[in-house]
Design a protein around this nucleic acid. Structure first.
Lengths: 349, 349
DNA sequence: TTGATTCATAAACGCGCGTTCAGGAATCAG
DNA sequence: CTGATTCCTGAACGCGCGTTTATGAATCAA
């Protein structure tokens, strides 16, 4: 069923059908009614690609989720308590704005080319990237495309930032440094002096910021940063679990508190602690990051830093859509606050 | 950058460029090389929509995830231990076959129209639906479309099944009835006589099958089906939690074992039991369904029925892609086995 | 009644690409 | 050397739709 068929059935020309569909003003009510009726009856839907080709967009945005694990890993990222809400929220927001979401997972550095490809092919009107690694020079790769791009959780350099208004790249992130600093400050205020860290991937914006804050706050308070207390994780449960067990089994003196770079790894620590007979918060305190769904489900409830995932993803979609529809032309950087949420996983020493 | 630009730069006609891109045999090696070089240099990518319009597909499949919750609910479905792996696996499989995935969430009955729309608009070459409700007459809505459709977790009637080879609709599901029967049989074999059920949405294929099996097995063993022991959930944690608490607080005699229609609701029962001082499996036994990631993470590890989610979603994508590319023309129904995985959440009476 | 203006609509072009078809060059057989 | 064949390639058409432009009808003012 093409628009020409509709035109014939309605006794008008194809142009008129098109004008009706696109809400042109200069078509008399009766004609409009007549055409709409035929469209309804035959369940006509304009061909997206012909439409796109003729100049309309495609109402499709790309969502590119960067995995810290590799494709063959058993750590599945959409089970991750950070990405899952992102995906869901992006899809819902986009749908409610009449947009479709093309979802793609990025495992390797080469996979980033998929973003460029999708834009060059005009497959998407714009794109959102979540969890981009720092070593990828995304800016240079993506700048200059026609499609607007929003990077969630990324930090562009100062220089590039100053020219951002001319770029097609916007950035949305949370104030991870501040949130992490507040978390560590909180532990210190409770009397903790030996504080361990369970790191996320430090080659991501979030991973790096959270660790930097940890180091700085310790130093600012005259506490030493013990290498042995820093566990290297990757935001995923499994590795964190083994790292924590390793420390616990080593026999060395333990920290009295841990700061985990995300909730999943904190949950892994919960398990390891339990297996070694350590109870939270009596024997050991812990703070997480993200405030994803598991945070409040853990026993005891996890004190953590809240990342406003829904707000961020909503903002990202709205931004991309606005840029696609040119209701906005300025690109921007938006930082959401990341406050500490105190629950039951820390005790005063 | 259009193919005509490439043609000019390479000193050939647009037709030749097209032939190179689409791997036509009748173009001499040198010419091919020359054109490919220009394409590489200028990062040319053919416009997807022009391509689609000219007869090629779009290499895009739709993934429609049906939510049992409503859009404004706080129960987010992609955090659900059943859907998240599905989404991830579908995306990965599709990408590895060179396909893109358009993801959509279906909340209301009207939302099912989105599936038809996407097909009619030629936005997708084919579609996959997960978790379709029974009351939706999806068959009638979707049959007759040009695009192939795969329904995961659905049961088409016998009559329609016999004509399935002429239809565009295929079905993939797990043998939920058998799996559930095995689970309840197992509890009975351990000596349990009072077995409760935590139901999922019985308006879905899975929900209905699992409950039917529960009833049948009890009756076959001469056990009565106690209304009071049947809790009505919706596959989501929160409601199950309140239902279980309600039963525990009611003061009535408790079952010695529960069969939960999925792992998430079993996890909710874990919490409720713990709060009422009941330990698993000493005081009460429980079996779940799905064998999602949390099953083995729960303490004690959950005995559950394994649904081969990755296999099913992989099969679904391969099926759709094969149908899109017409390497296969027969539509089919595939049922995967759902075996009981015995862990630590049940004890012998 | 006539010229000027508005309004409704159809014809025509372009979006970028795949593919068919025909023509020209090159190769071959005779 | 000539006619037949093969090989290569460019022109032309169509995919379905948005939009511009032109045309003809209808309305208005004078």
């Amino acid at each position: 069923m093409r628009s020409e068929d509709i035109a014939k059935l309605a006794g008008v020309s194809r142009s008129t059908v098109s004008r009706v569909i696109n809400n042109y003003p200069n078509v008399p009510p009766e004609t409009r009614e007549k055409v709409l009726k035929v469209i309804q009856q035959h369940h006509y839907q304009p061909n997206t690609y012909a439409r796109a080709l003729a100049g309309k967009g495609t109402n499709t945005i790309g969502l590119f989720v960067v995995s810290t694990a590799d494709k063959f890993s058993t750590h599945r990222i959409y089970q991750n308590n950070y990405f899952a809400p992102f995906v869901e929220s992006v899809v819902d927001t986009a749908n409610s704005l009449g947009y479709y979401v093309l979802i793609h997972t990025l495992y390797t550095l080469e996979d980033y080319q998929k973003v460029k490809q999708a834009c060059l092919q005009k497959r998407i009107d714009g794109g959102i990237l979540v969890g981009t690694r720092k070593e990828v020079d995304v800016i240079r790769e993506l700048v200059g495309l026609e499609a607007p791009i929003v990077l969630i959780d990324y930090d562009i350099g100062e220089i590039i930032a100053s020219r951002l208004d001319k770029s097609n790249v916007s950035v949305i992130n949370s104030k991870d440094y501040d949130g992490a600093a507040e978390a560590v400050d909180y532990l210190i205020s409770l009397g903790h002096r030996k504080i361990g860290m369970i790191n996320g991937s430090v080659n991501t914006f979030s991973g790096a910021e959270r660790f930097k804050a940890y180091e700085s706050v310790l130093q600012r308070n005259g506490l030493s940063v013990e290498k042995g207390y820093i566990l290297n994780g990757d935001f995923l449960k499994q590795n964190a679990y083994h790292e924590v067990r390793g420390l616990l089994a080593s026999g060395q003196e333990l920290p009295t508190a841990f700061f985990a770079a995300n909730d999943d790894m904190a949950a892994a620590a919960y398990e390891a602690f339990k297996e070694f007979g350590l109870s939270i918060p009596e024997d050991i305190s812990i703070v997480g990051f993200d405030d994803g769904p598991i945070a409040a489900q853990l026993v005891p409830k996890l004190t953590t830093v809240r990342v406003p995932i829904y707000d961020m993803s909503k903002e990202a979609v709205q931004k991309v859509v606005a840029l696609c529809e040119q209701t906005v032309t300025a690109f921007s950087t938006v930082s959401f606050p990341a406050p500490l949420v105190v629950r039951d996983s820390c005790r005063e020493l």
